[in-house]
C-alpha cells in the first residue's frame, strides 16, 4: 500500500509541486474573482442605490443592500424626473431614442449590405478607392464634421428633428456597416456570382436569392453594432437635438446634472439603468455577436 511505503525523494517533490499547483490555482481564482468584483461593483451600486430611499442613501453605506426596497426612484426616473425645465422623466426621451435608433439601424444596415455586396463581388475600377475612402471615413473624429453638419441640417430643415438625427447616424454609420458586409462577402467565392449569371440571374436577383440568405450572421452583428452605437451616442444627440427630440443619453445627462432641487442619487441611478437597459439586454441575449462586431470593427481587413 502506498500509504505505508517510505517516501522517495521524487515522491516528496511531486507532493510539493502538487501543493504548489493547487496554491497557484487558488491564486488564479482569487484574482479572477477580485476582477469580477471590480467590474460588477458599479452595476451593483447602481442597482442597490436605485432601490434605496434618499434617507437611507445619506445614512447608509455605499455598498450596503437596501434595508427597505422602494421603487419610488424608478417611477420618478421614468416619468417624473426633471431634465432642465420639464419634469416628465426619461420616458419621452427613451422613445425618442427608439424612434432614432430603429430606422437608422435598418437603413444603415441595408445600405451597408448593398455597398458591401457591390464592393466585394462587383468590383469595378475605382471600387477599391471608394472602399478605402469609406474606411478612412470610419476613423475621423466626428468633431470635424459637427459644425458643417449642423448647418446642413439647418438648410435641409431638419435641425433639431428626429429625422435629422436619423440621417446623421445613417451617414456616419455607413462606413462601418459597409466594412462589415464587405469583409463578409469577400470570403464568398466569386464563382458563385458567375454561376448565377450563367443561370440567368441579374444583380438584384443574385443579391436577394443567394447573398441575403447567407448573410444572417453578419446582419445580426451589424444590427447589434449599429444599435449599440446609436443608442449610446451622445455627441450627435446633444449637438443636433432640441428640447423634445433629445435621445435618452442626453436626457440622462440633463437629469444627473440638473442643479435645481435636492440631488436625488437614487433617481439618477435608476435613470442610468433605464438608459443602459436596451444595450445591456442585447449584450446578454446576443453577446457572441456583440463581441464579434467589436473585434471585427477593430481588426480590419
Amino acid at each position: 500500500m502506498t500509504d505505508f511505503a517510505p517516501m522517495s525523494p521524487a515522491a516528496t517533490q511531486n507532493r510539493n509541486s502538487d501543493v504548489q499547483k493547487l496554491a497557484l490555482r487558488w491564486l488564479l481564482f482569487a484574482m479572477l474573482g477580485l476582477f469580477a468584483l471590480f467590474y460588477l461593483m458599479p452595476l451593483f451600486v447602481m442597482v442597490t442605490t436605485s432601490l434605496k430611499s434618499l434617507e437611507e442613501i445619506r445614512t447608509g453605506s455605499l455598498i450596503a443592500f437596501p434595508r427597505e426596497l422602494t421603487f419610488e426612484a424608478w417611477r420618478t426616473a421614468w416619468s417624473g424626473a426633471c431634465t432642465g425645465i420639464k419634469c416628465e422623466g426619461l420616458q419621452p426621451y427613451f422613445w425618442n431614442s427608439v424612434l432614432i435608433a430603429v430606422p437608422a439601424v435598418l437603413l444603415s444596415t441595408g445600405l451597408g449590405a448593398a455597398n458591401g455586396y457591390v464592393i466585394a463581388q462587383w468590383n469595378f475600377r475605382g471600387a477599391n478607392l471608394i472602399f478605402s475612402l469609406m474606411l478612412f471615413g470610419c476613423f475621423i473624429p466626428f468633431q470635424v464634421v459637427l459644425l458643417p453638419m449642423a448647418m446642413m441640417l439647418g438648410k435641409m430643415g431638419l435641425a433639431g428633428t428626429i429625422p435629422g438625427l436619423i440621417l446623421t447616424h445613417v451617414i456616419y454609420g455607413l462606413g462601418f456597416t459597409t466594412l462589415f458586409f464587405r469583409n463578409f462577402y469577400v470570403t464568398i467565392p466569386a464563382d458563385l456570382v458567375k454561376a448565377a449569371k450563367v443561370d440567368g440571374a441579374g444583380f438584384f436577383r443574385i443579391f436577394w436569392s443567394i447573398f441575403l440568405p447567407l448573410s444572417l450572421p453578419i446582419i445580426v452583428v451589424t444590427v447589434i453594432w449599429q444599435f449599440t452605437q446609436i443608442w449610446n451616442d451622445f455627441l450627435f444627440g446633444v449637438s443636433f437635438s432640441q428640447a423634445g427630440t433629445q435621445p435618452v443619453t442626453v436626457a440622462l445627462n440633463n437629469i444627473v446634472n440638473s442643479t435645481t432641487g435636492v440631488k436625488e442619487y437614487n433617481v439618477d441611478m435608476a435613470a442610468a439603468i433605464i438608459a443602459a437597459l436596451p444595450t445591456l439586454l442585447v449584450y446578454v441575449v446576443a453577446g457572441k455577436y456583440f463581441i464579434r462586431g467589436l473585434t471585427a470593427g477593430s481588426v480590419k481587413g
Binding site: L43, N232, M269, A272, A276, F290
Partner: peptide, 10 residues
C-alpha cells in the same frame, strides 16, 4: 455595452 454617459454617471 454601456453608454459612456451611463458609465460616467455611475
Amino acid at each position: 455595452a454601456l453608454s459612456m454617459i451611463v458609465t460616467g454617471t455611475a
